[in-house]
Write a protein that binds this DNA or RNA. Structure first.
Lengths: 204, 204
DNA sequence: TGACTCCTACCTATCAGTAGGTAGGTTAAT
DNA sequence: ATTAACCTACCTACTGATAGGTAGGAGTCA
């Protein structure tokens, strides 16, 4: 069969196993230490190949950086999915959103991609900055749509424009993950999340 | 006189001029690019001395990093000052706090020290992490005191514990600076700040 | 079937550049 | 004479990147 056990990974269509592992590990390192804080050597050691072999998959570091961001963007798109059209769905998506960041905060060593790269912005090559802009655009478009629908369906309060609520949630959650990590306790994230629910939800 | 023009800077008591300039520039670079994103060479070029001369003032990079944080902490202490004991003073301090971060956001290229170092935490030597913990402790203690007094004096709402309000404000403001910088427009910060006033102030 | 070519996925060895850091000398004010 | 404040010259370690080679699978054709 084509799926032998010890053979070299089949070239086949799209993404070798090694390639995927490189991106996996590089993503972890990026979220933990930042773009300037990890090297091809770190990745090579973790994956178990030589430094030069990474260049076979990603000619330059910025190509690897771009691949991480693009993959995260795809994941964002089909994890978040289209905004629901009932109050229950909106409420569930809002909860899921908060729980997603709570999970990151609970791990204790990483930041979310948005917070990470917005902090690293000044040291990011254009080739990474570019897909990151798309990531950010998708993310905030989704949030804006969620709050627009949520206000219309009576899930969220209407004292503030939905676009402003969306902006605030994104920023607060990003800051909360960082605060939580630097204090070494998820509880800080939870206390902020609780306030955000109370602030936005009509029935918290 | 002691302030000749072209002579070597007088050793005098505490902090040479060059030493201060090194810390000044290093601080700017730190806030812009992060701890792993600037080098002794960058500083030397900007100050107009040789790389090795920086080592005369700061033996290791972590000493320089620690000096930046400690100085920022002192500045925090006497910029913020003790929390007032009238409603007017509290209100004024709250406004000043928000305007302080708005100024950073308006510059467009830097983050606040708290946000910066909490993002860099994983690449920070212990010698820098340590004064940063003190900085963070001072900062959040001041905020907690502000909200405690502010609730008592009828400046802030009482629907949420004052400690939680303080935590939320710190995180939100930190996230807002980052979001604002990565979108390249202070207006994003202002929209968040407006919401924070509305959220916490009894009479916004 | 075997020979030939081409491919992917690695390897070793090395590059120039830069990081932080050190040794030791010079200058000049106290 | 001492000492602070620089300098030149250098070091080691590591960065991302390149050159050139090898092993082995896949496709083609006599």
């Amino acid at each position: 069969m084509s799926t032998d056990l010890k053979t070299r990974p089949t070239p086949s269509e799209g993404g070798t196993d090694t390639r995927r592992r490189i991106v996996d590990i590089a993503e972890q390192l990026l979220l933990e230490r930042g773009y300037a804080g990890f090297s091809y050597r770190d990745i090579a050691d973790a994956v178990g190949i030589r430094k030069a072999s990474i260049h076979h998959h990603f000619a330059a570091k910025e190509d690897l950086g771009a691949a991480i961001v693009e993959r995260a963007r795809e994941r964002l798109l089909d994890t978040r999915g289209p905004v629901g059209d009932t109050a229950e769905e909106i409420q569930r998506q809002f909860d899921r959103y908060l729980r997603f960041f709570e999970k990151i905060a609970a791990q204790g060593d990483k930041l979310c991609l948005g917070g990470r790269l917005s902090a690293d912005l000044a040291v990011l090559p254009e080739a990474v900055r570019d897909p990151f802009r798309h990531f950010t655009a998708d993310h905030s478009a989704w949030l804006a749509a969620l709050f627009e629908a949520g206000q219309r369906l009576g899930v969220f309060k209407r004292d503030v424009a939905s676009a402003d609520q969306a902006l605030m949630l994104g920023a607060a959650v990003q800051g909360a993950v960082q605060v939580s990590r630097s204090r070494g306790d998820v509880e800080y994230f939870r206390r902020i999340a609780r306030q955000l629910r109370q602030q936005f939800l009509l029935t918290p």
